[in-house]
Design a protein around this nucleic acid. Sequence first.
DNA 1: CCCCAACCTGTGATTTCTCTGAGAAACCCT
DNA 2: AGGGTTTCTCAGAGAAATCACAGGTTGGGG
Lengths: 245, 245
Amino acid sequence: MTTTSPQGHTELLRPDGSPVRVLVVDDEQSITELLSMALRYEGWQIRSAGDGLGAVRTARDFRPDAVVLDMMLPDMDGLSVLGRLRRDLPDVPVLFLTAKDAVEDRIAGLTAGGDDYVTKPFSLEEVVARLRGLIRRSGAADRRSDSVLVVGDLTLDEDSHEVTRGGDGIHLTATEFELLRFLMRNPRRVLSKAQILDRVWSYDFGGQANVVELYISYLRRKIDAGREPMIHTRRGAGYLIKPAA
Amino acid sequence: MTTTSPQGHTELLRPDGSPVRVLVVDDEQSITELLSMALRYEGWQIRSAGDGLGAVRTARDFRPDAVVLDMMLPDMDGLSVLGRLRRDLPDVPVLFLTAKDAVEDRIAGLTAGGDDYVTKPFSLEEVVARLRGLIRRSGAADRRSDSVLVVGDLTLDEDSHEVTRGGDGIHLTATEFELLRFLMRNPRRVLSKAQILDRVWSYDFGGQANVVELYISYLRRKIDAGREPMIHTRRGAGYLIKPAA
DNA sequence: CCCCAACCTGTGATTTCTCTGAGAAACCCT
DNA sequence: AGGGTTTCTCAGAGAAATCACAGGTTGGGG
């Protein structure tokens, strides 16, 4: 089952129609706050914990549909937390947060059970997309919602990373793909450059705000090239995407 | 009967449509957890036990369609467990886990009856593949789903390990075969290097993640050589296989 | 109708990611 | 033990992606 969220895109719901529940675990409060805010915006119900013990305790009565778990916690290591979580909630999917330069071998085995991970610093779009994927595949959401976004004759497949316009395949880079996904998840809505920067670029991006203009330019070249444009500028406000019609 | 699993590939179901049940027996908890996670992800229902007695007791009321049994248990030796299991469930197929240097001839005798074994450290793809084979042949799954994966003009036979492209036979090494099988069981899906490493390489592999790149390179040489490529790189995301069309 | 802020986009430096050759070590079969 | 095969590390070449910068363009308020 899906319904329309305050943000305008379809959201996942549990079989009984109640919102999806996500537990966020990180010791840096700025991170839990950032994530909580972003995930609530998805229409999900969020709880957070700052350490492993709190996570296990919270999970027990909150019974989340998914967990976002930092691998680096003050009191226990990520794997122990995982083990304890799994004792109470054997099927809950977990999205791990790891440091970019963290030893790769810590990652080993984490995705084996269908779990997933993102490296810090992450972009919110990436976290949300992966979480949606995990929840979708775990069956916690009752609709086997498919992974394809459609706006007009433009399609974007989140599984295969395939993008087509009018049937023609279009190759996008990773950043272009995320930007387009964000636009397509919010069709007909004006998104400011600040919003785009906050969602699509990682939270520690320190560069020039005009990367957004640049990447919009790239996208137009690939998506609107010689066709009825779908990406529109609202001067002073931001950008929006809508069907060419 | 088959249906589409959360992962997108077809899964085995019992004649009455209920999920396949598998009992996992190992004294190392990290192993039972790893296996439970991976096998649940196949859509199967999993119970685990840490010793022979627990295994026999659990089997009695769980009535699994297959058992994964470590030969090295603290309380009894593998053969006794097997004997007791067979008293309650005469036909259940068993996948033995053995140490690499275990006495081969003993195993050989065991597998004569249709059982199978893998050596530790194993790869999850291998365990899953063997289990699928056992369950398929035992008739617990109602469709004798055939053992050939097909993507475009590429075929891979899980029983005979035969691989062909456009009718031509292709010789693959064991690792190449497992990698290709994993790709073909997830066609049109981007699989990250981490996912591939977690599924195709053994759980204790501590090496460089670029073995994946290397083996993709080998596969391309053998499968895509001079033809329309089927293996594609999604830079920054992973690899996927799809029909050349 | 003019001007300026906002926006667009070409260029190229830098960084990141991927591919693959060469060779060492392990393995296997006889 | 010996030769062929397989697995894997290492490292360099090459390709692709990201981004800063800057000059050009546009649109709308005054």
